Amino acid sequence: MRTALVIGTGLIGTSAALALAARGVTVHLSDHDPDRARTAAALGAGTDEPPAGPVDLAIVAVPPAHVAATLADAMRRGAARGYIDVASVKQGPRRDLEAQGCDLSTYIGTHPMAGKEKSGPLAGTADLFEGRPWVLTPTRDSDTEVFNLALELIALCRAVPVVMDADAHDRAVALVSHTPQLVSSLVAARLEEADETAVRLCGQGIRDVTRIAASEPRMWVEILSANPGPVADVLSSVAADLDETVRSLRALQSADQDKRQGGAEGVEDVLRRGNAGRVRVPGKHGSAPTAYETVTVLISDQPGQLARIFADAGAAGVNIEDVRIEHATGQQAGRVQLTVQPSAVEGLTRTLTERGWSLRP
């Protein structure tokens, strides 16, 4: 691939353009808002000048409701040898293209499983897709050359290709992406009218659960409007679990010992099923689930503290797999939770203690 056209310079489009431009591909940027394309170009994602002729690959990175129309327009103009989109739903856009009589041999639906709660070109990064799954949904009509171009794009973005049926993809993202967004928003909505005293007690748990609730509502309305059935099916199952959990919690208030026992068993059941589901979540870079250990370090709210911890961990020869920071309410202090391989815990703990860090269980 030598040339590409990115149509839509939001988070995903700009990130893909940055990755391609960094690896020598000439990238042309287009957006319904010229200022967004100019911003992406200024970030080094390519040029906002139109290409002189057909490019190798056109990447359509617009909201799901506009994918088909944008693709159809690009195809009619002969903008590229091959076309892909990166929308988070796959079956709807393909049906719309078929209805418009487009030649689908030059098109493959794709979806990079990466993102942020922030949007727009300024949120884009060249490493957004590294190690992340990138789904392709080819059909028997898909041209091999276009499939290879899509694979090359994924390789240049350092993502991991995953081939799926479009319907299976839409059901999968309803479970692992779209429903979590709604559940996060539902929990965060409880905070809107909460007493200020309660809000001040927010810890890492509520921050973890509500992080993606900061996402742009209009963008998510468009995504959910393109995949409402599968999302509603998952939420219906979640609602059934919620109803059963509410009944179990009410039973714990009963004066009847048997009812209390039944309530405790009901709550334990959902917690245990949650444990079992969480274990199946892939580890870093999509690898098989890995059991990690956590080393918790008390730090003061001063410049350079995190850098010192990472440097000391490096001196111990320990790779930090993940890190979380929990701030102590009302205090100029916090806790850093370092996630490491179990075999690294002893050496890291010893080194940090020797270097004056205060560890917590």
Rank of each mutant, 00 (worst) to 15 (best):
Val267Ile: 15
Val234Ser: 01
Arg272Ile: 01
Ala251Phe: 12
Gly262Phe: 01
Gly229Arg: 15
Asp269Tyr: 14
Ser248Glu: 03
Val279Ser: 10
Ala239Ser: 05
Val281Ser: 08
Asp256Gln: 07
Leu252Lys: 10
Arg250Cys: 02
Leu271Val: 14
Pro228Leu: 01
Glu244Val: 00
Ala251Arg: 14
Pro228Ile: 00
Gly277Ile: 03
Leu252Gly: 10
Ala240Val: 04
Pro230Gln: 07
Pro230Val: 12
Asp241Asn: 12
Arg260Ser: 11
Leu235Ser: 02
Gly277Pro: 05
Asp258Leu: 04
Pro230Trp: 10
Ala232Asp: 00
Ser248Lys: 04
Asp233Cys: 04
Asp256Arg: 14
Asn275Lys: 09
Ala255His: 12
Ser225Phe: 08
Val234Thr: 03
Pro228Glu: 02
Leu271His: 11
Ser236Phe: 06
Gln253Ile: 08
Ser237Phe: 05
Val234Cys: 05
Ser225Pro: 03
Pro282Ile: 01
Arg278Leu: 03
Asn275Ser: 07
Arg272Gln: 07
Val238Gly: 06
Ala239Glu: 06
Asp258Ile: 05
Val231Asp: 01
Gln261Phe: 08
Gly283His: 11
Ser225Met: 11
Gln253Met: 07
Val267Phe: 04
Asp241Pro: 00
Ala226Ser: 15
Val267Tyr: 01
Lys259Ile: 03
Gln257His: 14
Pro228Tyr: 02
Gly274Val: 06
Gly229His: 15
Arg250Glu: 09
Leu242Met: 07
Ser237Pro: 01
Arg247Asp: 11
Ala226Thr: 13
Glu265Gly: 00
Ala251Ser: 15
Ala276Asn: 15
